[in-house]
Amino acid sequence: MDLSLLVIQTLNGLQLGLLLFLVASGLTLVFGILDFVNLAHASLYMVGAFICATLTFALGNFLLAVLVALPITAAIGWAIERFVARPLYARDHLDHVLATFGLILVMETLAHMIWGPQGIAVPLPAWLNGQVALSETLVIPSFRLVIIGAGLAAAGGLFWLVNYTRLGMLIRAGASNRVMVGALGINIEMLFGLVFALGAALAGLAGMLVAPITEASIGMGNNVIITAFVVIIVGGIGSMKGAFIAALLIGLIDTLGRAFLDDLFKLFMSSAAAETSAPAISAMLIYIIMALVLAIRPQGLFPPKVR
């Protein structure tokens, strides 16, 4: 393996990890504070991508489309909290899983009715569509750097919001003891709605960032949601720090595993055996890691202190 390939794959892994963090952070916020399992979280990822695609064509500008699509996605998240999630808070996790599974079907069919069965490719402005040469042999698309930058910025913003603002203080307090927060006179329903909307906007942002690379399509959320759940479980459900570290870990392991596992296997087995087993193992790698983490630390790597 050569060095430039390693650098490129590491950047790809970083990009995947940051996108996963955007989805997983909302998931872990909603679970940590609302104790609500939201399978339909990735539908917001899909919806974000579709709305962004439509707006890119309507407004003629990708960046502007993202800025307009973010509050729309947040509003959809708020509506879901109000009409589907809120009646379910008193129920058990099984009911959450089933109801949000139904919600996935509803959202995907609505997307199908509005945008049709075909995926929509999102064009990038020329200045984002170029390539950056890091060295003579190392050229990467500049949009990938944009994704990494946006992901880091969103993670930093979230860190600031949760740790240094009044809203963040309430969010942390709500995660520790929501009854007490309500008893102190905080409008807990409003807080829950805000948290849900924030999570929706973050998931939507991830969808919007991915749309120009893949395209906005109906099933795009289905694999992401599972991986995002792996992330928050490895990280410890409800922990923002855990979600961040686990997201990068899972992103890097998944990408590097797919790229280099066969080379690694060839060191100690025949190349034929390596070539058949490596794809299987690398596809399963993140689940194997999750199983290992749970077998050793059933609460994840960084469980929140008070639960």
Binding site: H93, A280, A283, Y287, A291, L294
Partner: peptide, 30 residues
């Protein structure tokens, strides 16, 4: 044996993760 060490939502997700492992294992066996 592994799943039952966990409970609640962890159990839900780890059972799903093992199912996904089987899914991807079969997908990759040409």
């Amino acid at each position: 044996a592994i799943c039952l060490r966990t409970k609640g939502v962890y159990f839900i997700m780890i059972t799903m993760a093992f199912a996904q492992m089987v899914y991807y294992a079969i997908v990759s066996i040409e």
